[in-house]
């Protein structure tokens, strides 16, 4: 044969990532790129809120009640101060409350999804790998829970947790209770996918081989089975994040979530709704648009990711 092996320069990790099909479809999808930019900007401004925000809306010292109800971009009649997005009834800068509110929304969303993911993956792996009664109990619980809309489950858990916490701690604990409630309402998806994949992988030769050479079940699940389910888990996590952000906003809007002392976007909208009829539209509009942009762009990213990782699902 006439062909000689041509020495090939090994590809760098970055190169491999840039050449991948995933990145290719990403560049081909303007929707995905715009969503990614929006998500990035929102996340960064939430994380950097203390640096970006003109005022700290939760520091009473920086508030001036005289500034109350200042419309956006117009100087206040008494103080002459001007606010980019106006102020609310207590003279808080709406732009700053949104930045801080988004921090809470994102924190609750990410933490809840992370909690749901860890719980779901663990239970999914265990039920798929161990089988038997353990599996029956876990998956039956999942089935029963799936019969109920997750927002309802979250409300119930929130209600119960609220009942259990002593009154004086309720506001402080609200954020953590919210994470627990949303996380617990959302683990089933992860568990189902991971269990399904585990059942498939566990009988494959390489897993049998790993078992034969004496790997512990824990090591087999983590090293061999888990990597196979990462891409569906990633898709579910992204879509769950959008749902968790919406769920948090909904609960807070209904008054069973983040307390007024730590307002999330949903709480802000709840507050803003009160001023809808009196004409102070900006108190409602800006948090609402922010929430929509956040939820929509995360959703679009998730949608794109699902199509890109599994074109058949389209």
């Amino acid at each position: 044969m006439s062909d000689f092996p041509i020495p090939v320069k090994p590809k760098s990790r970055l190169r491999i990532a840039l050449d991948s099909d995933l990145f290719y479809t990403f560049r081909r999808s303007p929707v995905a790129m715009v969503s990614a930019v929006v998500v990035l900007v929102l996340v960064l401004s939430a994380v950097l809120a203390p640096l970006i925000a003109p005022t700290n809306p939760f520091n009473p010292a920086s508030l001036n009640l005289m500034n109350g109800f200042t419309p956006p971009m117009t100087p206040n009649a008494f103080t002459g101060e001007s606010f980019f997005m106006g102020t609310d009834d207590q003279g808080r800068d709406v732009f700053s409350t949104i930045l801080y509110g988004m921090r809470i929304s994102l924190f609750v969303g990410v933490a809840a999804v992370f909690f749901a993911m860890v719980l779901g993956i663990t239970l999914g792996l265990i039920s798929g790998y161990v089988g038997g009664w353990t599996e029956t109990i876990i998956m039956r619980t999942a089935d029963v829970q799936l019969t109920f809309p997750s927002i309802l489950v979250a409300m119930l858990i929130f209600g119960i947790a609220k009942g259990v916490t002593p009154v004086e701690y309720r506001d402080q604990m609200a954020i953590w209770v919210l994470i627990l409630a949303i996380g617990l309402s959302d683990w089933v998806q992860f568990a189902r996918v991971v269990r399904g994949a585990t059942l498939v992988e566990k009988n494959k030769e390489y897993v049998q081989a790993a078992r034969l050479i004496g790997r512990t079940p824990g090591a087999i699940m983590l090293r061999h089975i888990l990597p196979n389910v990462l891409s569906p888990v990633l898709v579910i996590a992204t879509i769950s994040l959008a749902l968790a952000i919406i769920a948090e906003a909904t609960l807070s809007f209904l008054g069973v979530g983040a307390p007024p002392t730590q307002p999330s976007l949903g709480t802000l909208i709840r507050i803003g709704q009160g001023f809808l009829f009196s004409g102070e539209w900006w108190i409602l509009l800006f948090p609402a648009v922010t929430l929509l942009a956040l939820a929509l762009s995360v959703n679009l990213l998730g949608d794109w990711l699902r199509d890109a990782l599994n074109p058949r699902l389209r």
Binding site: A242, I246, L284, A295
Partner: peptide, 18 residues
């Protein structure tokens, strides 16, 4: 429809009321 899925129910309600 994707906007519809991302739009929380309460926002739809508020929008319609407005």
């Amino acid at each position: 429809s994707l906007i519809g899925v991302s739009l929380p129910t309460f926002l739809i309600g508020i929008l319609l009321i407005y």
